[in-house]
């Protein structure tokens, strides 16, 4: 069989993000405004947030609580401060990516979007844990590539943030090699610094 590269029509990530925003605005004007504006969860904000606003922070942390529920020997989502770590990851990257994640979180939590996609009228962050799991599953299995992509992106960001926390790393049993990193190793920039001497391994 030869590849045809003819697959089912799918909308691009950017196109759908635009549709999400504009579609939501149009629906709000058409009478769904109360749902569009329905408040999500409110959480105390940690210091140092650079990307997330209060709503995105609370939504992401709500997702993280379902991803990392309390478990003996492991930090839970609040202890690991997953949303704050995710915020820091996003702050180091392209500002447009950060903006897209904010938009996705807005759609994810939005009650009107919830109604359109799956019939729920409560913001994700205010749902019961069981209903949140069902909502996550709905995004994961959606027939829309955009929604599956959004689930994938948020899930990946949550995992990358959580497993950067020392307590979470320790809980996996992984111990990074010790004694090999030299924090004050000289940085060679050219012959004015002498001959380059950095080739070949060294074992402490």
């Amino acid at each position: 069989m030869s590849p045809s590269h003819v697959g089912p029509p799918s909308l691009s990530r950017r196109g759908l993000l635009k549709r999400g925003v504009f579609g939501g605005a149009l629906l709000a004007l058409g009478g769904g405004g109360a749902l569009f504006l329905r408040e999500g969860l409110s959480l105390p904000l940690p210091e140092g947030l650079q990307v997330f606003g209060p709503r995105e922070y609370a939504t992401f942390q709500a997702i993280a609580r379902r991803a990392f529920p309390p478990r003996e020997g492991w930090p839970d989502a609040d202890t690991a401060r997953v949303a704050l770590l995710a915020d820091q990851v996003l702050a180091r990257g392209d500002p447009l990516v950060a903006q897209e994640v904010r938009t996705v979180l807005g759609i994810f939590d939005n009650a009107l979007a919830g109604l359109l996609f799956s019939g729920r009228v409560t913001p994700f962050s205010r749902l019961s844990p069981e209903a949140q799991d069902a909502a996550l599953e709905d995004w994961r299995t959606s027939r829309l590539v955009f929604r599956r992509g959004a689930f994938h992106a948020l899930r990946s960001l949550a995992h990358a943030a959580y497993y950067s926390h020392p307590a979470a790393i320790a809980a996996t049993g992984y111990v990074a090699p010790q004694g090999f990193h030299v924090a004050d190793a000289p940085v060679w920039r050219g012959p004015a610094d002498g001959s380059f001497a950095g080739t070949g391994g060294s074992t402490p």
Partner: peptide, 11 residues
């Protein structure tokens, strides 16, 4: 980035 920066921090 050189060995000074390669501190084995995955994130």
């Amino acid at each position: 980035h050189t060995r000074r920066d390669f501190d084995l921090n995955e994130a």
